[in-house]
Write a protein that binds this DNA or RNA. Structure first.
Length: 574
DNA sequence: GTAGGGTTAG
């Protein structure tokens, strides 16, 4: 039957497939299950084929076999409406034909692509009932499907129950954790895997590197990169890309560029974008633009992400006109602007105080602005005290159903700054009547190879008393430099002293204080925050860097801040 | 009713 296969692979059009089908029918081979389902599979999944023709042939089979169903389900799972594969699976179960491990595998992949958790649960129960669960490959698919639809606890209990664990299932669970916002868990599993005597491969290190990037885990990242070099995994482009990203997000732009420059394998547009973004995160506007310009010289074409990265770099470096020029040139080169590009340029103009121009660009958008974009503009209105535009923007946010605490705070502060207390009262009233959503801020820091997590107001750390004592000392010493808490950043119906406290116990300050008491003076302090750094923390950490003579690096949601001797690499522009 | 199915960067 290798004969049918070799012929199939020579087909590069539907016409060819039909010719082969005719040939099989006339020679009687089409009655053979094997040739028929091979042809169906090829027709349903290869680019030369056509799913609707495959379905047509399928419907004309009097008693389709499992393999025929599998071919069709696999084909549907690969379309842009993968959920229809589930209906097909259901029809198959109603027929006299039994699903096998492959049927389940294809259907599960379809579910994973649409985050259809309930359907996964149903297939899982079928799988248990029919006894195909013993199949390691199917277990991995099931695990991966749970992880992809966000059910990490199901994914990890499946993993725990597995009796045979090969490299792919380790990879599935590690990647699942890394992509599901549980980077600590991913690294824990990565360590456990190596302790089990398994050798991580390129897929494993991609997951582990991504976890390090999220955590800013330098030491762990370094170790993994050493392993990558030893195993020659750096011959693989995806591994290099992930390594560049990891070094950049752990604060080593130079190391990131070294990896980029010394790559032996091909660089794709993703590689270039990663490096441009690396510069952007660190506020290296000039380098980012230079690199962006060299994309074409290297025979590649900048895509939508390239533009986003370079715009982001202009934004962080305050290169307003350069950014605007790049934004406007997008149309000429045929790269479509999306809401993120608009968001970036609105931020760029907003920070420079060009609010009217920013608003005009928003109005010119072909699609609806998103919440983030309006929030950006609202922030700029607050900075430049433009209450009129601020109100307009807030109205849009309310209409979009925003319940973010920050939005209310900004508008309220905008009114307060102009003494419009009645309006301040109205905003507070609205806040009380809305279930305000507040994303908790947290920070990570690595001390002695251990990653510590701090949450705002946290008192669960074993050394919290020492940390709070240090913060009291800091408060005293910075007040000598004329520091007054900018309680603008807080909106609570509480007294001034309490407001000061809310600010003082922000997660980034807790992390910095912890580093001050637990690390030696010659090592820079490095903190990683999930949200943007708050304005008060920015002022305080600048002062700490001066008074305590410590270099402090804070990575926030969008960029790096390198505090040195009382100033920050962002130039207070962020 | 021979084979096929699992993990993958910005």
């Amino acid at each position: 039957m290798a004969y049918v296969e070799s012929l199939l692979h020579k087909c590069n059009s539907l016409q060819n497939i039909k010719q082969l089908q005719a040939h099989l029918i006339t020679t009687g081979l089409f009655k053979s299950y094997f040739s028929r389902s091979k042809l169906l599979d090829f027709c349903a999944t290869s680019s030369a084929g056509d799913l609707s023709y495959a379905t047509f042939v399928f419907h004309n089979i009097t008693r389709p076999a499992t393999n025929d169903w599998n071919a069709i389900i696999r084909g549907i799972a690969g379309t842009n409406q993968p959920i229809k594969a589930v209906s097909c699976y259901v029809s198959m179960r109603r027929s006299s034909c039994k699903p096998d491990a492959l049927t389940c595998s294809f259907t599960l992949k379809a579910c994973a692509r649409t985050s259809a958790r309930i359907e996964i649960l149903q297939i899982h129960s079928d799988v248990v009932k029919t006894g195909v669960l013993a199949d390691v490959l199917l277990q991995t698919t099931l695990l991966d499907s749970y992880a992809k639809c966000g059910d990490l606890s199901c994914a990890s209990s499946l993993f725990d129950e597995m009796t045979v664990r090969d490299i792919a299932c380790w990879n599935a669970v590690i990647t699942g954790m890394a992509q599901g916002n549980r980077p600590n868990e991913a690294l824990r599993l990565f360590k456990r895997m190596t302790e089990c005597g398994m050798y991580p491969n390129e897929v494993t290190v991609l997951g582990a590197l991504s976890a390090c990037s999220q955590l800013g885990a330098r030491k762990e990242g370094d170790k993994i990169y050493d392993y990558i070099r030893n195993q020659k995994l750096d011959a693989i482009e995806t591994v290099c890309n992930a390594s560049i990203d990891m070094f950049a997000k752990c604060g080593f732009v130079k190391k990131a560029f070294e990896v980029f420059a010394s790559m032996q394998c091909r660089k794709s547009i993703i590689t270039w974008n990663t490096m441009v973004m690396a510069y952007a995160m660190h506020g290296y506007g000039v380098q980012a633009i230079e690199l962006f310009n060299s994309i074409r010289e290297n025979g590649l074409v900048p895509d939508s992400v390239s533009y986003l990265s370079v715009l982001c770099a202009c934004n962080h470096a305050g290169m307003v006109d350069e950014g605007l020029r790049l934004f406007e040139s997008m149309e000429e080169v045929g790269v479509e602007k999306n809401v993120k590009h608009y968001g970036c340029v609105v931020d760029l103009l907003g920070r420079a105080g060009r609010l009217e121009q920013a608003f005009k660009i928003v109005e010119s958008m072909p699609t609806l602005p998103d919440v983030v974009l309006w929030q950006t503009l609202l922030g700029a209105c607050k900075t430049y005290g433009n209450a009129e535009l601020g109100e307009k923007v807030s109205r849009n946010l309310v209409e979009m159903g925003s319940r973010s605490c920050g939005d209310f705070v900004l508008l309220s502060n905008l009114y307060a700054a102009q003494g419009r207390w009645k309006d301040v009262g109205k905003v507070r009233e609205a806040m009380k009547n809305t279930s305000v959503k507040k994303i908790p801020g947290f920070s990570y820091t690595e001390v002695g190879g251990v990653i510590y997590k701090f949450i705002n107001g946290d008192q669960t750390h074993p050394r919290w008393k020492d940390i709070h004592q240090k913060l009291d000392e800091i408060r005293f010493r910075i007040s000598e430099y004329g520091y007054v808490a900018e309680t603008d950043y807080v909106l609570h119906d509480i007294g001034q002293e309490e407001k000061d406290n809310v600010l003082l116990y922000h997660s980034e300050k807790l992390a910095v204080a912890f580093c001050l008491i637990s690390t030696s003076a010659d090592i820079p302090i490095s903190v990683n925050k999930n949200l943007r750094i708050c304005g008060d923390c920015h002022v305080v950490i600048k002062l700490i860097s001066k008074i305590y003579k410590r270099d402090i690096i804070v990575r926030d949601r969008t960029r790096f801040h390198e505090f040195k001797d009382g100033s920050c690499s962002c130039g207070d522009y962020w």
